[in-house]
């Protein structure tokens, strides 16, 4: 199982530098690990613990609290169907049932070819556009069953590769630490912590 690549260690260190205390960078770096491998591996968690000066158990404790982190490989495309109240009222369960039928898997599992994972998720903040779903956290609104089938076909055909990166990649634009980074928070907090 992989540790973080050198390039990602560089990014991780830059992220750490943007917080007054290193552990604050934990969740963003877990995302980085997930971006690298599609899931968060044990070796990556050990590596992150080293980078942050904490124990792997602490990394694990935080990581497992949050639903987005996967600890074993999932599909290239994670299809999260919202079934919360607004979506339920407008046919989310029927959409989910259709999705399961169409892909031949139950919610919470992955197709044999490793392409798709379906999940039954909580509100994704698209309530007025129900029923809504996300593919790797990219929205699809007011999804009809036919549109769902089309979506799957497009994803299989690679037609949406530009818009939807593989699972794990969240924002494709990163905040940078520019020349005029003031660093006032870290300096001030370090003073307090030293006391």
């Amino acid at each position: 199982m992989p540790r973080l690549t050198d390039a990602n260690v560089t990014i991780a260190k830059e992220i750490i530098g943007r917080y007054p205390r290193p552990k604050s960078a934990l969740i963003p770096i877990l995302h980085l690990a997930q971006e690298q491998d599609g899931y968060v591996s044990e070796d990556a968690m050990r590596h992150i613990a080293e980078l942050l000066g904490i124990t792997p158990a602490e990394v694990y404790g935080t990581a497992t609290f949050y639903e987005m982190f996967k600890f074993e490989p999932v599909g290239r495309y994670c299809i999260n169907v919202c079934t919360n109240i607004s979506c339920q009222l407008l046919g989310a369960w029927e959409l989910l049932e259709h999705a399961e039928h169409h892909l031949g898997i139950k919610a919470g599992s992955t197709t044999d070819d490793g392409m798709f994972t379906i999940e039954d998720v909580e509100c994704i903040a698209a309530c007025t556009e129900a029923p809504a779903l996300q593919v790797n956290y990219r929205y699809r609104y007011r999804v009809t069953h036919a549109e769902f089938d089309l979506l799957i076909a497009d994803l299989r055909a690679g037609g949406l590769a530009d818009e939807i990166p593989p699972h794990g990649t969240l924002a494709r634009v990163r905040q940078r630490t520019p020349q005029n980074w003031a660093d006032t928070g870290r300096t001030a907090q370090a003073e307090v912590d030293a006391r």
């Binding site: 982190f69 905040q175 005029n180 980074w181 006032t184």
Partner: peptide, 23 residues
């Protein structure tokens, strides 16, 4: 944003951070 914003003495950083799924 950052050091000496708009040439003034005021400096502040804004760190973009994000969660991972927990209401």
């Amino acid at each position: 944003v950052g050091r000496n914003i708009l040439g003034t003495d005021f400096s502040v950083d804004v760190t973009l951070t994000w969660g991972a799924g927990a209401y």
